[in-house]
């Protein structure tokens, strides 16, 4: 499938070391900033474990150096790099590309 970069607005709208949710087409994408690496990650906002749109509201961290997002509802941990769930490997998240360009954030998801 052809996917395009979507501009999701100024970097200033997205807090450091935290998650935000954006709408790309009808897909809810959770965008995260990791201050430690000074970079952005994006995964699906939908947590397949509890079937809720909540991941952007989770806390970010790392498990043995791999950046992770932890679901705010039941604390399932997912790798931000490849979407794999550390807590229960039957779950995984779709990972999207995200990059910063001239003060704007772009995600590749549609």
């Amino acid at each position: 499938m052809d996917t395009n970069w979507t501009n999701i607005g100024s970097v200033d709208l997205y807090p450091q070391d935290l998650g935000s949710c954006v709408l790309v087409g009808d897909v809810q994408v959770a965008v995260f900033h990791l201050a430690d690496e000074q970079r952005w990650y994006a995964v699906q906002n939908y947590n397949p474990q509890n079937e809720r749109m909540v991941l952007s509201r989770g806390i970010v961290g790392d498990e043995k150096g791999t950046p992770i997002i932890i679901c705010p509802l039941h604390k399932y941990r997912y790798s931000l790099k490849d979407g794999k769930c550390f807590t229960d490997e039957q779950y995984s998240l779709k990972v999207f590309e995200v990059r910063e360009e001239a003060g704007e954030l772009l995600v590749k998801a549609s």
């Binding site: 807090p15 450091q16 935290l18 809720r52 970010v60 705010p72 509802l73």
Partner: peptide
């Protein structure tokens, strides 16, 4: 210190099962 607060503290409210 927003980034330290989890689930409920992060939004000063109690998150329920549906988000």
């Amino acid at each position: 210190q927003k980034k330290l607060q989890d689930t409920n503290d992060a939004f000063l409210a109690n998150m329920q099962q549906d988000g």
